[in-house]
Design a protein around this nucleic acid. Structure first.
Lengths: 323, 323
DNA sequence: TTGTATGCGTTATCAG
DNA sequence: CTGATAACGCATACAA
């Protein structure tokens, strides 16, 4: 494997000159540039990027920490980040954690070894206190409402969004309301519970804990919920569902059971992914791809100008046929 | 930023000793090991992974080239690769290309700079002749039926799978058959066309080019196809659809138009993603997550023992209600 | 079991 | 415009 020194020798110039043509510096004689190019060609020279990283002290790479990639919410976010990163000639290093706190910390530790120039955290399970030291060691962007003076964030206000969904159900006359969510814990989950209970309280309605379903991630979880619901003596008349996928599962299974939507059960979900339009699901639009792009831009801004920003992305109700 | 030398000085040992404890070598006195650990603690030392990469000549990272991540087929594949990579303590560097040949070549070039120890190619647009030199420069795995003596592969035999789907439609009496596919070109697309035309030829049925729809990737494309179909004077009575997502879009739109499945149109798709079960779509199961895991294992095997393997993954018909 | 010296392949500074 | 040389931070062969 030829290196810069051999190129220099063959081209009869110094290594600095070779480095200069490699990096397209100005001020190098056309004649020498050509000689270098020829030597590169002749020796099949390929730059060793690891040496560049070491020498420069940066990698032009951003690390992305996320639980799963096989989920429309995360893959849309990731797609947005990827598009923007590519545009700015940044690489993408993936850290998939499956919400395992140990893996999360391992990922953060790897990144701290200068493997990346900064990080974007899509979702997490670990407590912020355990993560903080890592997030402060480099530019960090997080996709949740985290109010920290040196961590940028782009987020949906899930209190507001959930409340908006709930209020829509209430305005349509539904009173026996439950919801489906991915996890019990986590910033966003807490916010949603709060929105839910406060919204009901204002109407003097008590929360029915049995109508709160967790571990709802994909279509199959929706199917499970529908069957659970079916077996209940006291059923809700409406459900907020934190993901279109889950809503699709509920609706599919529900109609197999011979029940009607929204007659027997109204469903309002979140994401506005294509599946919700296909199935005519009333949903809250979440601009996820755009959030991904914003996340990358925030990272870049933080890296180059040091600026920290918190940006809220707006959710919007899309009325269709399930409420 | 403390480095190994400062640690050595503070701990009163040599840099080699520090390196040894860092790498958990045997044969280092417990006493010195402790001294080193303390120094590390005291100076907040973090290893610089880029220096390690340069020195070792490898990165414990695999590069994954793919067009999109926001698509169940690719994200499942990616998820499988990620799980297996994590298990073997390998990192994952993503190269998203959007099927742009220039970006594909750029990605391959980056990888060749020793950014990764090997690559896994999920799908591509570039011709093999343009990619070959890169794929031979390091262990490479490709997810298609590519018969090359030094490139490992894991693939569905799309000729066989498509043919199996087609034969099922034929056996059920359908004769006016069309299909939906992502792209016109590419190894897999060609294989499918071949399976399609040969399968029909055996029954003395001519191919109707108007019933072949390309650029079908997501639900929205399925909706588009359904509307196109609706406006046709001569309609097919059955459709092979290369992705469950697209099938879901077709079925959703089709029923909005007041037509029946399979009465007015039979649909047989591919993937067996959760959406197909929810909508009771007859589909060919493709073990995509498992293929991802296999892809990583093949990469590792190639890296450590030099072995090249071609592995076929089997598709299987899942009969439900749309045929 | 430990230390010395050298290599890994670039970039960057500074003098010319 | 060009070249010599010192970083960058770590791993490792070899000697002790």
């Amino acid at each position: 494997m030829a290196n810069i020194r051999e190129i220099a020798k063959l081209a009869n110039v110094s290594v600095s000159t070779v480095s200069r043509v490699l990096n397209k510096h100005p001020y190098v004689a056309e004649e020498k540039r050509l000689a270098v190019m020829q030597a590169i060609e002749k020796l099949d020279y390929i730059q060793n990027i690891n040496a560049v990283h070491l020498s420069r002290g940066k990698t032009k790479t951003v690390g992305v920490m996320l639980p799963y990639v096989n989920h429309p919410y995360f893959s849309s976010l990731l797609e947005g980040i990827g598009e923007e990163a590519l545009k700015h000639e940044y690489g993408l290093h993936l850290f998939q954690t499956a919400y395992d706190p140990d893996k999360e910390i391992e990922a953060l530790a790897k990144m701290k070894m200068r493997m990346v120039d900064g990080m974007i955290i899509l979702s997490r399970k670990s407590s912020w206190s355990k993560m903080e030291e890592y997030c402060l060691s480099m530019p960090a962007v997080i996709c949740e409402k985290l109010d920290h003076p040196s961590v940028s964030a782009v987020f949906i206000d899930h209190y507001k969004a959930f409340r908006q969904g709930l209020d829509h159900l209430l305005s349509k006359g539904y009173r026996r309301i439950g919801y489906c969510i991915a996890r019990r814990t986590g910033t966003n989950s807490n916010l949603r519970y709060q929105a839910f209970s406060e919204g009901l309280a204002e109407q003097n309605i008590a929360v029915t804990e049995d109508w709160i379903f967790d571990r709802c991630l994909g279509i199959e979880d929706g199917e499970r919920v529908a069957r659970q619901l079916y077996g209940m003596a006291e059923r809700p008349d409406a459900l907020l569902v934190s993901s279109d996928q889950v809503a699709a599962g509920i609706i599919a299974e529900w109609s197999k059971l011979g029940l009607r939507i929204p007659g027997d059960l109204a469903v309002l979900s979140f994401d506005n992914h294509p599946i919700s339009r296909a199935l005519q699901i009333t949903t809250m639009d979440l601009p996820v791809n755009e959030m991904g792009k914003t996340a990358f831009r925030l990272f870049l801004e933080r890296l180059t100008s040091g600026q920290v920003k918190q940006m809220e992305a707006e959710a919007a109700l899309i009325e269709r046929k399930t409420v």
